[in-house]
C-alpha cells in the first residue's frame, strides 16, 4: 500500500462507523459557526465575553439534565442569563465590565461543577465530557440540534450582515443612523450563546474560546475584510475540528484539547508567515520579539 493510499484509507475507514459519521457532521458544523460568530467577538474585543458565556452554560446544562429537559435549552438559558447579569452589574455599579464578567462566569462555573458533581453520583452524566469535549460520543439528537442551531446562526448572520458590520465597526455611528443597536447587541449575545451550546460536546466549555477566536484571528492576519475573515476562518475551523476528531479517534484523546492544539498551530503559522503581518515575513517589526529590557532591538 502506497503512503498516500494509507493516509486516505486512515481517513475514510473510520467513517464506516455510524458514530464517526455523526461526529464528523457535528465537527464540520461547529467548526463553521464558531469561526463565523467568533469573528464578531474578535473584532469587538469581546474575547473574554466568549469565555464568560461558555463557562456560564454549565449550571443550566446540569439543571436541564436533572429535570430531563433538552440540555441544549438549559445551557442556552444559563448562557444568556450570564450576559444579562454581567450587563446589569456593569450598568448599576461602578464595577468595570471585565471584572463583572470574571465574577459572574466563575460563580456560574462553580455552581455548574457543584451541581454536576452532585447529580453525577446517581446518573451517567460525565463532567469531563462537558469540560473537555467528547466528540465521539455525540448522539443523533445532538446532530439534529447542532444542525438546527447552525442553520439559525448562519441564516441570522447572512441576513443581518450589513447591520452587524456597521454596528461592530462603529456602534455610535450605527446608533446615530437610527439602527436599533441594543437589539443588534442582544442578537449577537444570543448567537454567541447558541454557538457555545452547540460546541459543548465537541470542544467542551473550557476550551471553546479557542475555536471561537483562533480561526478568525488566523484569517484576520491573512485577509482584509470581515466576510473574508469569516469564510477563511470557517475553513480553518472545519480543518481543525475534523483533524481533532481523527486525533481523538486514533489516539484516544479528549476532542477539545486535540482540536485546540490544531487550531493554535494554524494561528502560529499565520503569526509567523502571514504575508502582511507575519513576524518572519515582516522582519522590520519582528525585532520587537525581544523585550526591550533585555537590551535587544535598539
Amino acid at each position: 500500500m502506497s503512503p498516500e493510499w494509507a493516509i486516505l484509507n486512515g481517513l475514510v475507514e473510520p467513517l464506516q462507523y455510524a458514530f464517526m459519521q455523526r461526529s464528523l457532521a457535528v465537527a464540520i458544523l461547529v467548526g463553521i459557526i464558531c469561526s463565523v460568530v467568533g469573528s464578531y467577538l474578535m473584532v469587538q474585543r469581546l474575547a473574554l465575553l466568549g469565555d464568560a458565556i461558555s463557562h456560564s452554560v454549565l449550571p443550566g446544562l446540569a439543571i436541564a439534565f436533572w429535570l430531563g429537559v433538552n440540555i441544549f435549552v438549559g445551557a442556552f438559558i444559563a448562557g444568556v442569563m450570564s450576559t444579562v447579569l454581567i450587563a446589569w452589574i456593569h450598568r448599576r455599579s461602578p464595577i468595570k465590565e471585565d471584572a463583572a464578567m470574571g465574577i459572574v462566569f466563575s460563580a456560574f462555573f462553580a455552581l455548574g461543577i457543584t451541581l454536576i458533581t452532585t447529580i453525577q453520583k446517581d446518573t451517567k452524566i460525565d463532567l469531563n465530557h462537558f469540560l473537555f469535549g467528547n466528540i465521539l460520543g455525540v448522539t443523533l439528537g445532538d446532530v439534529r440540534d447542532t444542525a438546527i442551531i447552525a442553520a439559525l446562526v448562519l441564516l441570522t448572520v447572512a441576513l443581518l450582515y450589513k447591520e452587524l458590520l456597521f454596528y461592530s465597526f462603529d456602534p455610535l455611528g450605527a446608533q446615530a443612523s437610527g439602527l436599533p443597536v441594543g437589539l443588534l447587541n442582544s442578537g449577537l449575545m444570543v448567537l454567541i450563546a447558541l454557538t457555545v451550546v452547540a460546541s459543548m460536546k465537541v470542544v467542551g466549555v473550557i476550551l471553546v474560546l479557542s475555536l471561537l477566536i483562533a480561526p478568525g484571528a488566523t484569517a484576520y492576519l491573512l485577509v482584509p475584510r470581515l466576510h473574508q475573515v469569516m469564510c477563511l476562518g470557517a475553513a480553518i475551523g472545519v480543518c481543525s475540528s475534523v483533524s481533532g476528531l481523527y486525533l481523538s479517534y486514533y489516539f484516544n484523546l479528549p476532542s477539545g484539547p486535540a482540536i485546540v492544539l490544531v487550531v493554535s498551530a494554524w494561528f502560529a503559522l499565520a503569526f509567523l508567515f502571514s504575508p502582511r503581518h507575519g513576524v518572519l515575513t515582516n522582519p522590520g517589526r519582528g525585532v520587537s520579539l525581544w523585550p526591550r529590557w533585555l537590551g535587544w532591538g535598539r
Binding site: V43, K162, E163, L165, F169, L172, A174, L226, V229
Partner: peptide, 20 residues
C-alpha cells in the same frame, strides 16, 4: 472612537452609510 485595525476596506465603510 474607531478601531482602525478593523477588517474593513474603504468601500465597506462608505457602504455603511447606505445600511439604514
Amino acid at each position: 472612537q474607531i478601531d482602525w485595525t478593523f477588517p474593513a476596506t474603504v468601500w465597506d465603510v462608505v457602504m455603511m452609510g447606505r445600511v439604514k
